[in-house]
Structures are given as structure tokens and as C-alpha cells.
Design a protein around this nucleic acid. Sequence first.
RNA 1: GCCCCAGUGGCGAAAUAGGUAGCCGCAGCGGACUUAAAAUCCGCCUCCGGAAGGAUUACGAGUUCGAGUCUCGUCUGGGGCACCA
Length: 979
Amino acid sequence: MAESGVSEDREPEYRYNAALAQKIENKWQKKWDDEGTFWAANVKGDLKDGKGRNADGRAPYFVIDMFPYPSGKGLHVGHPLGYIATDVVSRYHRMKGENVMHALGYDAFGLPAEQYAVQTGQHPRITTEQNIANMHRQLHRLGLSFDDRRSFATTDMNYVRWTQWIFSRIYDSWYDPEYVRADGGKGSARPVSELIGKFRSGAKQIPGFEGRAWDSLTEEEQSDVLNGFRLAYISKSPVNWCPGLGTVLANEEVTAEGRSERGNYPVFQRELRQWSMRITAYGHRLIEDLDMIDWPEKVRLMQRNWIGESHGASVHFAVPTAAGERDMEIYTTRPDTLFGTTFAVVSPEHPLLADVPDAWEEGIPDAWKGGYATPKEAVHAYRLQAESKTAKDRVAEEGDKTGVFTGLYAVNPITGARLPIFAADYVLMDYGTGAIMAVPGGDDRDYDFAVKFGLPVIYTLQPTPESGETLADYEGKSAYTSHEGTIINSRVESTEVGGDTLDLNGLTVDEGKDRTIAWLESRGVGKGTVSYRLRDWLFSRQRYWGEPFPIVYDENEVPHLVPDSMLPINLPDVPDYQPRTFDPMDAESNPEAPLSRNPEWVNVTLDLGDGPKKYHRDTNTMPNWAGSCWYYMRYIDPKNAENAVDPEEFQYWLGPNHNATAGESGGVDLYVGGVEHAVLHLLYARFWHKVLYDLGFVSSPEPFHKLFNQGYIQAYAYTDSRGQYVPAAEVEEHKDGTFWYDGQQVNREFGKMGKSLKNIITPDYMYDTYGADTFRVYEMSMGPLDESRPWNTRNVVGAQRLLARLWRNVVDENTGEVTVTDDELDEKTAKLLNNTIAEVTVEMENMRPNTTIAKLTVLNNHLTSLAAVPRKAVEPLVLMLSPIAPHICEELWTRLGHEESLAHAPWPVADQRFVGVDTVTAVVQVKGKVRGKLEVTPDISEDELRDKALALPKIQELLGGNEPRKVIVKAPKIVSIVP
RNA sequence: GCCCCAGUGGCGAAAUAGGUAGCCGCAGCGGACUUAAAAUCCGCCUCCGGAAGGAUUACGAGUUCGAGUCUCGUCUGGGGCACCA
């Protein structure tokens, strides 16, 4: 490099190499920081100052990334892909004159920080701060145009305070399904005080205390009743207990194999008292409102499937027991098959099993008894067996049906038939009602079970004649699970059970469903219902490094909300913040919250409005997702001490229709992140947002209007003959396509970048070797943003050549002088320039930086070929490339004589006089094959083009003197001839 | 098992209201400049063929004057869900 060398072969002083790039980049990063170039302007308050550009009259544009978790490992080149993409978009929108909100915070609570802290022996807050500082350094060096005044971490006590405040609002709310919202929709979160009002006035029955006056209930009773309605509630219910991690987990954090997503430990179903959020209350709205947001169809589909709304009916079956008649409610999506049900199945945890008889009836087959002397023993043993299974075991045994007869019978409410009730673990307690009517003729699982236990099979649907199938194809072999067909065997006379005749024969499935539901409802034995696959969100964790709950318990264990004025509740210093973990297979272990280890913090005397009393704090912490549920709105005003978010600012930045594209949903204009959060963060955040919307704290129904999933940067890794990874950077490719390391041939694999794969490239390496701009151009040119692509350092030189060539087009490498001319553009250059402006604008609007770069490269290469580079062409080129390579473009812009940063310079507009082409190549096809080409004007008439095409000697020859049968002309591009 | 997405040169990839397949870049080849190399600049670069020509967007059919693009089937890869009644 210039300053280091004295040798004769040193490079020209002003050559655009890594050293010069670094100098330019550092200069501009400092300047941007000093001048507040990227400050976004609020409507009012401390952040109103946008450095001469205020919010008035400027459209807001809110673009963010899924904020990072600052791990101690540092970044590799795959991490910043999304950040570069949003930065390009941000810079483009600034040049369009918009008020761009672009900031980055840190999602800093969570397991890795805690584990890293355990390893290093430092408090998680210290390691977290170090990690944030390091990540900030690495990202800052990329020249990302963030408004740094708006950055924060979820661990900042000023943020924790508001996370706790939002929890308090959710805790203090219930879901009123009848409430008509201001937007016209039905159902809304409402303050619990309204619910109490309804109980007091008698407008609503008190569940469990029907007929009692609210004020006659004890405090404990009132607390229990309200707990059954609160959107954040404590309950003892089956949860995912992970001994290996020492904490409980949400369903979304457990893999299909029944293991923890983090750490891959076994997960057990345990009845534990834990916090949940009533996200199921929002199931329907979370599906319905997917229609108003601009998200990838794939993600919307994943959310729909995850929520899993199904429409069916709940049906009551009477169950006679020794202690009297019990009611068994089942859920079915196929009420039309009620005539085909031949037995019933309840889950092993079902409450009905408390009433199983003491002895087997005469004539019960041995296979039903499971080898036990009485139903009680059989059911008890089966239940224990089911509980001891991990979720993984259950999955592994799928298809292999187990179960035991309960000795109980249910009465089919339509036919009066007596159906044996079995307990089996293929029926889940937490879906539907935990009980099913089994229809072996129409359901594969029920069929398997019927075969195993020798139960009858009735088919109630006959395949349509058009299908070419008959029931004979199924009888004795399998269930007929299709919905296509005609209902049979489904008629009951009124005399059998009284009331109306029900006759479904001859109907379709949908008709049969409707008629059955109407019949059930008219007789009060069932009704149409909606069921969800989605479960309530398990919200507590036994962790140190998370937000404490703003909840204390009195001496009677009645929970009380800590008043807002006492927030935030800080984390205590505990002697040992390590989570208590257990043998991963020890299902009997119990969670132990680290916060419980500091009695001085746990036991407090507080005045909650009725004088000082003793309380103890909740010792759980919130899951990592809590902080990420609302961070986007905090960028608006991260230091606001009055509100989580100011309503007026929210309306300006994120309200419905806040700009031309925001739509009714409002929310973040562009949200870029990985698809792995499709049903975790993105579902939880929508849920919180909707609660805040219902309660009037935010004005948009959705948090993120447009979502974009960036692809991943993948990398090659190489293994030697023993399967060991070898350093990828030292592998050489031979001409025959083989790969060699240290004299040995090695195998190439393709996948992630990772330390263990020895193929990590760090951003720092890229800054040192090429500069940040080259790195940015390379990442943006690799391919479409939403697709994954392999990293190949060898290809980076192409990006570097583009920038170096642009530099040379403006600056003399030896003297540093600007060499552009002020001459008018020649015709060819003018046309290319203006066509490029028109095309690149479209590419930028559609987030296609790869094709943007290709088109700008063509323009740049053209300028290179000219004797002198005209200012009037290179200036727009510099402007257009600046969102992608901002530093070099700022430097060139300055050298071209501009005093202001180009960050807010207007995006070039194409001169329409030069847009379009003089001539186009028309193609002449015969039988679909290209047989000739014609240079024609774009406005050529169809007749003229047809005549010219037919006059071509080649075409004449192919026609052999015959008249063509048909000629299709699409002027000016194509003539297609059928001989 | 069910649902969704993808498959284009040696490589990363362009091009879809159906209209010249392969923009741009990497690698490679040739040339200019240089004592030489690097850098730079110019040219070639899907495959077969000397050429004429032919073939070609995973594979096989179909619709069409015309298919990378639409339809059906198959294969391969990736993702989601998975005893959800």
C-alpha cells in the first residue's frame, strides 16, 4: 500500500484498494455520526430534530431488521445480509425524501448470555454489555445508516420497566368475545375491572359460583375466578418440562421429536403451576388479519397451520355411572358421521376416569382389559404408563394404538346406541375436549384402534360413482377418509329417542354436517364450535437472566399486581444465577427458579394501597420472547419515561395508512428477518400488539405490515478422508474440479458457516481485505435477497473491480485529480443512462439489489469505454449506487464538487426523451424456431412487419413458394409463421 | 403420511400478463500494455459439430403459432406440520 512501501512496484497513491477504501469509510462513518446524517425526525419532543429535516410534510418510512441477540461469538459474513438489505432500502427511501426510521436494538436477555456468564464467571449484564459493544463495533464498520440515538437493549432497566408494564396490562385484562371494537370487529381485550362490574351487576354469571353475589366471595375465590379470565394467568396444567435445561418451555420451543429446540434435551409433559398467556382467545383474529398484511404466503400459511382453526361440533354424550349420570362432551369436525361412531375414546387424563366402575362386566373381551382385574386398575396403570412416556416416545409409537377399556359406556345422543369408552393416549387432553367419538369407518386412527380391539366398523359415506371406487374397496381394509361421496346408513326414526327424525342419507358431507348441527342444537345436545390447534402460550421460565414478573403473593398465595409506580422490578444479585438443571431423563425433577435464592429480594413489605403488608415475589422470569414482542415501537422514543410509546408518535410512524403503502393494518413498513421466526416471535408479537390495540395503547391492528424473509449465506466446508473438517480457506481447487488440502484430496460439503466447520469468514476480514463497500456490493450482488446462496470469497473481486472502475472513471489514480468532463452526453450514453435510471428505480422499489448492480455495472462499463467520462452521466450513477456502496459514493460526490452529503440528495429521475429504444430486433419464427431477425423501429405496424418478415429470403426458402397457413404478428417483437 | 417451495452454462445467476434463454459477475481461453509479473484495457466463452446445422432451462407427456414461464405425471433437493378428532 502507498504509505508503507518504498519499492518501485508500489501502487498509485490514489488507487481504490483496501487501504484507500478503509480510509474513505472511516472518514465518512465519523462524519455521518458527527453530523447526525441519519437522524429520523419525530413529530415532537427530544427526537424532533432531524438535522434540518423535520417530520412535517414528509412521509414516514419505518424499516427494521429482526434485532440481534448479541452473542459472545462475534459475527460471520452471513449475519449482516439482512442489515445490508434494510440499509440499502433505507438509503433509497431517504433519497426519495422520506423520513426514514432505521434503528437497531439488542435482544439481550436469554440463555446464551447466562451460559456464557456462567463460563466466564461474570454477571450476565457485564458480558451482555461487552457483547453488545463488540457487535456494535462490527456493524458500525459496515456503514449502516442507523439513528443511533434510538438504540437500546431489552435488558435496559428503562425498557424492562415497560415490558413489565405491558405484562401488567395483559394480566389486568380479559377477553370479552361480545365487545364490539371501534373498528367494527367483535371481541376485544378489556380491563378486568369491567369483568368485575359484570359480575357485580349480575350481567355475567360467576363460573363455579353461579347465583352468588360477587362481593360475597372471599378474596381467594375472587382471585381464582378472575384467573380463569385473565389474558395472563397462572394455572396448573400439563406443560413441557425440560430437566436438562431446568426450565419449562412453550410448545413453539419444542421440536417435532419432543425435544428442546435449544440443546436438544428430552421434554416431558408435567402438571406444573405456571404462567400462560391466553393467545388462544386471539386465534381467529390472528388468522383473519393475515389477509391485511403483506407477508410471504409461506409464512402466512405456517401461521394458519400453527393456529389450526377447525370448524366442527361439540356433542354431549350421556355416561351412566355408579355415582349417577355424567356428561361427556366430545369435539368432532365431522358431525355428519355420528351414525358411524361405534365407540368413544378419552385421553388418559380425562376427568371422567374418576368414575370408572369397580368391576368388569360379564363378557368383556380380555384384550380390552389390558390384563388387569378391574377397570380402575387398568385405567390407573395405563395412565401411569402414558405419563412416563416422553413426547418423543409418543411420536415414535404413532400408528401403534394402545388403550384400555374403562368399563364405561356412552349413549349416542342421536341413535341411543351404547358405545364402550376406551382410554387411549392417541387422544390428547389439551385438544378439543379430550374425548372423541370414534368413527372407524371414516378415520384411519379409529380404524386401527377398532381392528386392534375388535370393534365394529360402520361406513356412513359412499364414494361417488365418478370416482370409480366402491365401499367394497375399503371394507375390511381401511377407513374411507375422503370427504367426497354420498351419506348412507344415517337415518333415525323419531320414535327411537323422541323428537324429529334425522335423515342424512343421500346428502353430501357439508349438507350432513349442517343438518346434524341444526338437529343437535335444536335438542340442546350439541352445537357448532370452532377448535384450535394453538395452545395458550406458556410464559414463565426458571431462569435468572430475564424480566421478573411484576407480581407478588400475599400470605394466602393470592397474586397481586405490583403498581406501575413501583416498576421496574430489578433483578436481584443472587449468590448463584446458574439454572438448576437435572439429569435430562429425570422427569420427576422439579423446576427451581434462580431468583428464589435471594430471600431478601423475594420477601418484601409493600404498601399496595391498603397499608404495608408482607408479600413474596414471583420468582419466575419471562421468556426471551417478551422483549422482542414490542421493541419495534420503542425505537420511536426509547427513553420515554411517560409511556411505552407515545400515541401521537405511534400514529405518525406506525398508524394505519401512515404512508401510501401502509394500509389499514399500519405497522412497520418493512421488516426483514429469517423465516425461522414464522410461528414464534411473529405470532407472539402480533398477539401482544393486538392486546395493546384493543386496550387503546396503539392505533394499528398489526405490528408489521410488510415482512421479507432474507435467505441465508451458506458456505462450503471440506472434510478429509477421516471425515475431519479442514480449514476451508486453505483448500485449493484443481482444474479438474477436485479439492485439495495439504497434499490430500478433500470432500466438499455445503451448508452453514460455523466454527466447527472451519469455514468462517468474518466481516472484519472483509473490511481489512476489501473494505466495507466491496463487502456490501458483493453480498447484494450474489443473488435474490430471499434465496440462500453460497459464499465464495474468490468472487468478491468482481465487486471490488466494479468500485475500482467507478473510482477511476472519476479520479486519476496517480494524481487524485477529478477527470470528468462537463460536456453534453452523446446520444448513446444519454439513452443508456436514462434507461438505466428507469430500470434501476423499478429494481430498487422491488428490493432487487442484485439486478440493480448488474444494470449499474453495464452503465459503468460503458463510461469506462469513453474517452472522457461525462459528469452528467457519472453523477447519477454515483447517486444510484450510493445506497449499496455509500462510502465510496459519498467520497466521489464530494470530489465532484458537492458540499452536502448525498444521503438526502434526490434520487435521479429519468429524462423521458431518452427512455426507450430506436430500433428493436424483431424475431421471425417458423414453427416456433427462430429463422430470421429484423431491425425495426418500435412503432412499426403489424402489416409492415409481416410483409418484411415474409420477404426475407430465408423465410421464402422455408416456405418453398407456398402461402403460409397462418402468420401471427406481435409488433414490434415477433412474427410467427405456420407454413 | 399431509401441506408448501425450488431444480437454467464449469460456478453465482438474469429473463415469467407465454414471445430472441443465459444480462452482470467469477473461473477459463486469446490479445494489447510490461524486461517480467501484478494491475488495467480489448475480445472469446451453454453443449455437439470443421462448417452448415442441430440440441438445450431435472425427466416424461400435454395445451399453444410459440413454454424456463401454463396443466398433468415422475424424480431430486429444501422447508413446515405430524395420533389435532
